[in-house]
Write a protein that binds this DNA or RNA. Structure first.
Length: 423
DNA sequence: TCTGGGGTCCTAGGACCC
DNA sequence: TCTGGGGTCCTAGGACCC
């Protein structure tokens, strides 16, 4: 048996934890750059506001309804997420940290101690009391069913008390019959449309469709989803996250970038940040990819989107190598006279140590003392962000993202408070 | 009339998730 | 004026191998 625990309206809830004055008030959280809505609490949803609405379009209505609006504050969300996960780890034998606001629990053995539903309520009560966040709990024999049980717990909080146990086949069929197929985990808009054309509109019909038919029209992913709905586990429980295959750092700019030097600063900054993430994963990479693009919504000027990649001879984790490669890629794809909206750097082809395989006649040698130098940089920046950076990243960073309604870093150190630039 | 069989690796693109 | 960021997995097709 698995449980899926998921924090209700996570980002919006985090913003209210330290602001009791917001109780009962609608709250929304905006994406990076204060672009669009990415989290809304129950009150904001009840007013008819929707996910992904551009802020500039709904701003007047938000003001009119006295909605509290926040820029996203990832330092705060990550810290509250950590507290949730730590609490869950104390309660369940095994925990899979699935996303910033959800975890699967392996409930093996729990039923010997108490009814599973009781356990679900204990989890809920404890998180409410200790972390001041409200969660939904779904319990079922497969991950996909646990997801649906969780959905039901959140959709009918009054009737369910926030906990749904979906262990009996009869209850499973009832719920599946009720839910449209696009609500199933793994079925997105495109696949739902295709399923609907085949006459499969609810989750029960997908569960009962012949495997051969599903396999004929879809990939093995859909077959697994259908089997999971029938109660046959196909998705493994991953207690330890597998090592990443790619690391990406990208941002939209606060204003369109047209200047080559500004773009170099941005790409250098993302490369440095990606390198930092790489070192935190204790990996070395060989492939560096840079992409730049204009806005698809921009009616002025032609749309342009391009990327280039560079493969190093020797895997590296040194910011200097990664930045140099990222800038080489930029030079290959940079075209003047575009209004760029976004750029990013992707690292790939990872190795767990620097010198994986030296080329027989290789002129390239690993940099001397690279690891030590990078460690010094990381340690300094860990104490206080942006203590030390490479000159190429720039100082003014006019293109850096906008976060005009950022909440304070309630839970973390003073050093992490939003930095005020003194010029 | 009629031209093998069995693999690997890589990449681009499409789908999904939060 | 203004529309996020960071990931995963699978498949088809091409190049290449013996």
């Amino acid at each position: 048996m698995y449980a899926l625990v998921d924090v209700n309206t996570f980002y919006a809830s985090c913003e209210t934890v330290f602001r009791p004055d917001l109780k009962g008030r609608p709250v929304v959280v905006l994406s990076n750059n204060d672009g669009c809505v990415i989290s809304l609490n129950r009150e904001a949803k009840a007013l008819g506001f929707r996910m992904a609405s551009p802020w500039f379009k709904i701003r007047p209505q938000l003001q009119q309804h006295n909605v509290a609006v926040f820029s996203s504050n990832y330092a705060l969300y990550a810290d509250l997420s950590r507290r949730v996960m730590e609490t869950l780890e104390e309660m369940a034998p095994r925990v899979e940290n699935y996303s910033i606001d959800e975890a699967f629990l392996d409930l093996s053995g729990v039923a010997n101690c108490m009814p599973l539903k009781t356990f679900g309520h204990q989890v809920r009560n404890r998180l409410q009391k200790e972390v001041h966040l409200s969660v939904g709990v779904g319990i079922a024999p497969t991950k996909t069913l646990a997801k649906l049980a969780n959905l039901a717990a959140k959709r009918w909080p009054q009737q369910t008390g926030g906990v749904v146990e979906l262990t009996s086949p009869r209850h499973q069929r009832q719920l599946l019959h009720y839910l449209p197929v696009e609500e199933v985990w793994g079925v997105g808009g495109r696949l739902a449309k295709k399923l609907n054309l085949m006459g499969i509109t609810n989750a029960l019909q997908l569960a009962e469709a012949p495997t051969a038919l599903i396999r004929k029209h879809f990939s093995v992913v859909m077959e697994r989803t259908a089997r999971e709905l029938r109660g046959e586990p196909c998705l493994a429980f991953d207690e330890f996250p597998p090592t990443k295959q790619h690391i990406l750092c990208s941002r939209s700019f606060s204003e369109r970038v047209t200047d080559y030097m500004a773009m170099r600063e941005a790409v250098s900054t993302y490369a440095a940040r990606a390198a930092e993430k790489l070192r935190r994963e204790h990996q070395y990479c060989r492939e560096i990819n840079t992409f730049i693009r204009t806005s698809p919504h921009d009616s002025r000027g032609a749309w342009y989107s391009n990327g280039a990649s560079y493969t190093l001879q020797i895997p590296t984790q040194d910011t200097r190598d990664i930045t140099a490669a990222a800038l080489r890629c930029l030079d290959a794809i940079w075209r003047p006279d575009h209004r760029y909206m976004k750029a990013g750097v992707i690292l790939g082809d990872f190795f767990s140590q620097g010198v994986a395989q030296l080329h027989l006649f290789d002129a390239f040698q690993p940099r001397h003392n690279s690891e030590k130098l990078m460690k010094v940089c990381d340690d300094l920046n860990k104490k206080a962000r942006n203590t030390l950076w490479f000159a190429g990243q720039g100082i003014q960073q006019e293109w850096a993202m906008k976060r005009e309604m950022l909440s304070p870093a309630w839970t973390t150190r003073i050093a992490d408070l939003p930095r005020v630039r003194i010029s």
